[in-house]
Every structure is written in structure tokens, then in C-alpha cells.
Design a protein around this nucleic acid. Structure first.
Lengths: 185, 185
DNA sequence: AATTATATGTACTAACCTGTATCTTTTGTC
DNA sequence: GACAAAAGATACAGGTTAGTACATATAATT
């Protein structure tokens, strides 16, 4: 492996591991074993496990939002259907093997202090998600794009939690149908 | 303290600690210190930490559902307003100091394996919640009480996640208003 | 009052954790 | 090819973890 790829590879491996086992349950020894790098190398790139977790969350945030944008844009829809398409993206995620609930909710649950960098990373991600929904709602010419964005967000979070616990990706479709009716008025 | 009270007291203390610090982050040493009992005593009542966590979740489930029932019943409402009253209960919870997100979502996030007794306890709780919502929807004479229950559930889960991350209890009111519109049709 | 069951206290095990120190080997650059 | 930076390997420190052993004390029961 090229040296320049190490940090990214490390983050990818760590993300998968934290996601699958939990942030506290997965140790740095497991991360380096799976990544095939030395512990010294990990600690050269990240000053602590917490630092690594923050990097992981930041990467997941970027990846998640850009993937969602791309999925939504690729359908060439406008207005309400564009907003509703975000739920189709959700369903694909829920059905994937790598789905173990929202990584940010899980991380915030494990690092409970609001002041922790990990919790704050989750706060930031959720803010950006609502901002995206508001952008879509504004483009769809809703009277109150803020309210629509909040409601889409509630349904996204709800669907994610429900799919996590029940294991049923269909939660996304139910949320989509609810969202469609909320946008009718 | 009376001997008969020990198990319950232990569960209460553990529940508060797990909730505040996280299930893996809070150790049994902290639990026994806060509860003022000996470690031997804890392990006489619970064969392992996992066993204690299951007992904690079972207690939270019973407590949560009975408190919600009581809060909803006390208002003497019928039909849709009765369903909507569940969101007022949520708001009270969100505003309390003991709110650190949904204990079941957090627990399931830390003990990721679906087969684990802890995860299954969360599955059970969520099932019972939907059953309660369906009971209310049926009493309100909805054409499709199952669908209404699922939607109320989505909004409850969404509001809980949003309130957890943003720290804003107002998520409950937004979810309530969305629920009200979903029940109009 | 005697007996039985349970709680306490202390010490301990054995594993695991994050993070560091040290030294050797590899890699990229001039 | 020489030199510097970074990766590897190994070992280790210092702390925490869940869980147990055992001897003593305190309840509850008969």
C-alpha cells in the first residue's frame, strides 16, 4: 500500500469496525490488525482513539451526504419527488449489510457528554442534513421550507431507528408515504 | 436498606448510570459504589453485567410504558387527541435532566449483535410501543390503525433522536404537529 | 436462641485497554 | 546512491475491566 493511502485506509477500516462492533467495543488493536498497519503508524496520524473516531465520523458525514446528493440528483426529479427520493436512498442503506443504525446516533450514545468532540461531530452532521432538506424544500417552492425540512428530518431519523431495531428496510417506504402526505397540504 | 429492596435499588442505580455514561463506559465497580453494596451481592442477583443490563432495560420498558399510559389517560381525552397526547409525554421526557436519548437505541448500538439478549430486549420494547400506538389508533376508529401506529412510531423515534442530538425538547411539538396532519386524511 | 441464608470487605485473577518507547526496515526524495 | 522521513515489530507501562474466592458479619427464620 502507498503511504499516502494509509490514513484514508485506516479511516475506512476503522469506520467499518466501529460501525459493526461499536465504538468502545472495537479496540485500536483490532483496527490496526484489520488495516494491516503498525500501532505506531496509527498514532502518528491520530493522536488518540477519540481523534480517530472524529475522523471516522467526519468521513462518514461527507460520504453519506455526497452519496445521497448523487442518488437524488441522478433521478432527474424536481420539487416534491426530489424530496421523496431521499427515502429511496435510505431504503438502500437499510437493506445493505453494513447497516447497524445511524453511526452518529450510536457514537453520541456512547460518548454522552455534549461537549465531547464526538458528540459535537454528530450535532454537526445532523445540522447539515436538515440544511440539505431545507435546500430541497426551498427548491420545491414550499411556503415553509424550514418546517418541511424538520418533518423530513424527523421521518428520516425515525425510519433509521426503526429499521435498525426491526431490521426491516420497509421503514423507509412507510416514512416516504408519510412524508408524501405531509407535503400535500 | 432492606434486603428485599436491594435488587430494585441496584437496577435503578444501574439504569441511571448506564443512561448517563453509556452501557460499556459505566463499569460494575461504579454501579456498586453508587448503590452502596458489595460486588459479591451484585453477582448473587445477576450472573453477569449483561444480565444486569437486560434487567435494567426490562425495568425501563415497564416504567416508560406505564408512565406514558398514565400520562395519556390522566388527560381524559379520546380519539386523535389521545394519540397526540403521547407527544406531550415525550416532550416532558426530553426536557428532563435524565434524558440522554433512547436507552434502547443506545443499548442496541453498543451491543450490536441482533442475537444478543440486550438487542432483543430493545426489539421487544419497540414492538410493545407500536402495539400501544395501534391500540390507541384502533380506539380512535381509524380505517388503518396499523399504518397510523407505524407513523406515530416513526415520529416518536425521530423526535427522540433529534431531541437527543440537538438538545431541543421542541422536537416533540414538531412531531406532534406532523402527526396531527397525518391523522387528518 | 440457634440456624440458615445472605451481605460485606478485601484481595485477587486474568484479560483487555489506550498509549508509548525503542529499534530496525522500508520508502520516497534530492 | 545518500539521506531523511515514515512504517514495521516488539515489548512494555499503567490502568481498567468483569468476575471470583474466602473469611467475616448481619440479617431473617424456625
Amino acid at each position: 500500500m502507498k503511504r499516502a493511502q494509509i490514513p484514508e485506509h485506516l479511516i475506512d477500516v476503522a469506520a467499518a469496525l466501529f460501525n459493526r462492533l461499536g465504538y468502545r467495543a472495537a479496540g485500536v488493536d483490532q483496527v490496526i490488525a484489520e488495516a494491516g498497519i503498525a500501532k505506531t503508524t496509527l498514532y502518528r496520524h491520530f493522536k488518540s482513539k477519540e481523534d480517530l473516531i472524529v475522523a471516522v465520523l467526519r468521513r462518514i458525514d461527507e460520504h453519506y451526504r455526497s452519496e445521497m446528493r448523487q442518488a437524488v440528483d441522478s433521478l432527474g426529479l424536481e420539487g416534491k419527488p426530489r424530496l421523496l427520493a431521499t427515502f429511496d436512498f435510505l431504503e438502500g442503506w437499510f437493506a445493505s449489510e453494513a447497516f447497524y443504525g445511524c453511526p452518529f446516533i450510536c457514537a453520541a450514545g456512547e460518548y454522552c457528554e455534549r461537549s465531547s468532540a464526538i458528540f459535537q461531530e454528530s450535532v454537526m452532521h445532523k445540522r447539515l442534513m436538515v440544511a440539505y432538506f431545507e435546500e430541497l424544500a426551498r427548491a420545491a417552492s414550499f411556503d415553509d421550507p424550514r418546517r418541511i425540512a424538520d418533518e423530513i428530518n424527523l421521518l428520516h431519523e425515525g425510519a433509521t431507528a426503526v429499521a435498525h431495531i426491526t431490521g426491516d428496510p420497509g421503514a423507509a417506504r412507510k416514512a416516504k408515504s408519510a412524508a408524501a402526505r405531509l407535503m400535500e397540504d
